[in-house]
Amino acid sequence: MAEKNAAPLVDIRHLKKYFNINVGAFQTKPLKAVDDVSFTIQKGETLGLVGESGCGKTTVGRTILQLYKPTAGEIIYNGQPVKTKRDLKTFRTKATMVFQDPYSSLNPRMTVSDIIAEPLDVHGLCKTKEERRARVLELMSYVGLNSEHASRYAHEFSGGQRQRIGIARSLAVNPEFIVCDEPVSALDVSIQAQVINMFDELQDKLGLTYLFIAHDLLVVRHISDRIAVMYLGKMVELADAKEIYEHPLHPYSKSLISAVPVPDPKIARANVRIALKGDIPSPMNAPSGCPFRTRCQYACDKCAERMPEFKEVSAGHFVACHRTAEIND
């Protein structure tokens, strides 16, 4: 578990990532994939990140790791801003990413051993062949892969095994912080459980810190200490996992959580879902003011005029809504 009051390991301030999209022959328009997002993650903590497809979760992850160049904002790691090329080089040995699709994220023509060792080679972390070999075997054992698997090719493995290979590879640089982008979404439930448990165990063993992106809210609820909810490039709510699940304050989080199909017939039948009207707007044409207002049953004039501030309404519970108090009376 995370230390509550210590300085955060990851401190993200006003992060923005705009993509320029061609709209005419010589015209571009910014697509605000991530628009002024701030949050922190404590060492050893798991922060879950949820929201509808296209709301900017992956972009947040990739921009933090600077796989995308941030449009604006600060990334402060362990108290140090990551700014220069040199900062980034050290940062890249401490922070890595695990990708969603175990089928396409590994080169099928490479052996498991070479896949896992690639980051070791890139960063020159092993001096001798023996050292490299020993490290690969150690990493494989972390994720429950057999040493016999080392010389086999990625395409010979099942989805769950490939995801393990991907995770072993991410662990190669000895990272402290891992962005996990939908790491279990492509897996069957029984395999999903094995991989979720493995994330848990690795965290205990290696003291890892996770940003865990997923669209399955029960998975996120299971694994996260705190959960952040995004909508159209903005963060709309952030709180302790249990708190947000039991007392969501933002109208979007309320509807999202009420929509989760709970695997228990009595609860599921009694559950009152808060239906959302319409579809999510395109991020190219985000509404003025509150991004959620076109689908919000509580929207008023003020909501169209101003973007609500992302405010701490009770200890550790942040919400961006003009009407939090009235709605949650």
Binding site: S190, Q194, N197, H222
Partner: peptide, 21 residues
Amino acid sequence: KGLMRSIPSVDSAGTKLQPIT
């Protein structure tokens, strides 16, 4: 039974899931 034990539920946080091996 294995399937039921392996899925996260509303109150499985903090416990280990029991995967089908």
